[in-house]
Nucleic acid binder design. Structure first.
Lengths: 227, 227
DNA sequence: AGTTTTAAGCTTCATTTATGGTTGATCCAC
DNA sequence: GTGGATCAACCATAAATGAAGCTTAAAACT
């Protein structure tokens, strides 16, 4: 699966420019102000966010803060801004940013930094093996093995497991799963998620006894993995 | 568990300076040239490496290259160097660096970047862990432990404890609890709060004798904690 | 044929309401 | 001021409720 990047940047030209540069390895969505950016990010369907600080409606610090403290989003966040003082940088890092690049910058450096972050989360397309606990997931061949036993998963079941594997030990709401796998605009009923959870659990049960997918009623699902 | 950092830097003063600054959250080992640095890194005992590029014996690019391609070391690597051209940076990232900081730099920024990298690898205590008195509350997994004993709390009980833990030694009125957990507009009767206070107290009693939730009649509740 | 989606019945359990009991502040008679 | 009556605030338990989630199978896509 390709990485999915959120670009929060009010400079339309720059935003489109960035979007264009990352097409070879990621898809992207652009938000032109803080409020929209925060809202989009909340969906939890992005693997990385590029965040400007000086934005209309809501500044980047607030967006970052809300994401990290209210939504507990764990996606890597790269701040891209003209604010170049030490104080600004420290504030960004303290709020939970992963990287901080100041304008003006070389496009190639931005790309390199994005790739470095994606590589860490195992999301860069040349990094095809996702290893979590006893699962080995081959994102290119779309195959799964659990302790050497291979697992036969169909499309959405596979996507679901990948999403869990990319977010182990974090609660994921049913809505997030839905948005990520079906897209916000989908007409499908939200309850499909339950069906796929059920199917996936059944298949996992054929290879392991322990239920790694926990249900937290009224909250979400949790892929529990002991490191 | 403390992080263990390798500093490969020929400037003794700087190396010691860095080592000193990270002592609060990590232990460190210093190598003064590339050859020694590479050798030390090969041990695979480090959680992060800070790597200079211009080094005696063997330059940093080679060290980095060997680590990543021959040893397949996966530790995060931060390049710290005077080489500030785009070409240098790209080369560093292409060889597998995770971050690249150019000299001169602010010590605080280096620390912030190191922490950001460690946080990603789960080696820096996560701030989603809420520690109050003997309680450890994991906001991501919605789990609670009291002195190592785990506590099973359902949705609203957990939310209530979190609210208290975020406001220790402060009086909270019943109305504020209600507004926070149920929302202003809720149709529910205010007395649910009492029910949940009761339930929470009962569950807390299974792990500790002392009543930390005090009632202040006609005023509110108080989560009493001796710091 | 294989995958995705909907539908339907069923189970579970968090939430809410209801009930009766306890506490403790306030008032008043003595 | 002492003792009792009163009353509202609060506690504890339990039952009711209903929404959330599970499972299966059939329908509708591809």
């Amino acid at each position: 699966m390709q990485a999915n990047i959120l670009i929060v940047e009010d400079d339309t030209i720059l935003a489109n420019d960035i979007a264009e540069m990352i097409t070879p390895f990621a898809s992207s969505t652009i938000a032109h102000d803080g409020e929209n950016g925060e809202l989009l990010g909340k969906n939890g369907i992005f693997d990385l966010a590029i965040l400007d600080l000086m934005l209309p409606q809501e500044n980047g610090y607030d967006v970052l803060g809300h994401w990290r403290t209210e939504q507990h989003l764990e996606l890597p966040i790269l701040i891209l801004t003209a604010k170049d003082t030490l104080t600004d940088k420290l504030r960004g890092f303290n709020l939970g940013a992963d990287d901080y690049l100041t304008k003006p910058f070389h496009r190639e450096e931005l790309i390199a930094r994005i790739k470095a972050l994606l590589k860490r989360s195992g999301l860069l397309s040349d990094e095809t093996l996702l290893q979590v606990a006893d699962f080995t997931i081959d994102l290119n061949r779309r195959t799964v093995t659990y302790k050497k036993q291979s697992l036969q998963l169909n499309g959405k079941e596979f996507d679901l497991l990948v999403y869990f594997a990319q977010n182990p030990n974090v609660i994921i709401t049913k809505e997030r799963i839905f948005d990520r796998l079906w897209g916000f605009e989908s007409e499908t009923a939200l309850t499909v998620v339950e069906v796929y959870i059920s199917n996936l659990r059944k298949k996992l049960k054929t290879v392991t006894a322990d239920q790694s997918i926990k249900t937290l009623r009224n909250v979400g699902y949790l892929f529990e993995v002991n490191k």
